[in-house]
Amino acid sequence: MKLKGKSFKYGDNVNTDEIIPARYLNSSDPDFLASHCMEDIDPDFVKEKNAGDIIVARKNFGCGSSREHAPIAIKAAEISCVIADSFARIFYRNAINTGLPIIESPDAAADIQKGDELEVDLDGGTIKNLRTKKTFSFEPMPPFAQEIIQAGGLMKYVMKDKQE
């Protein structure tokens, strides 16, 4: 799958309270959650983002709570993927389970600045920064994660497994 979009850049340890503040957790409606996505760290994010844009951050993206509302909010905000140095483990799991592509690439995350145009090839494992004209390769997701994504998410995977 090929993705194309402009980047929104953040630093280390972007936590789930910043991705979607707890005060909105009394709802699980994706569009409502998307309308408050990144609100406390970047109030302009919701106004400025377009479908297909890409969030880029440094170490430990998605740390904090286990709320699946975080990847749901990002996905419903029509962000096509998240690139970071590393991800917090529950966020990583939740992203796979809900079908939000995530990429670990410290080199790309260091190079990319806010507003850069990016091209990502998920299957080929490359990220291209059109501004710096640099290309970065990344490790595809582990096979089990790909199986889950191919099945269409954890639930479909599990139900298929159960019937066999």
């Binding site: 699946e68 809900t98 639930m155």
Partner: peptide, 13 residues
């Protein structure tokens, strides 16, 4: 700790 989808799958399996 896991996410809600993990919980859903665990409740079934």
């Amino acid at each position: 700790g896991v996410g809600s989808t993990d919980l859903a799958a665990a409740m079934i399996t």
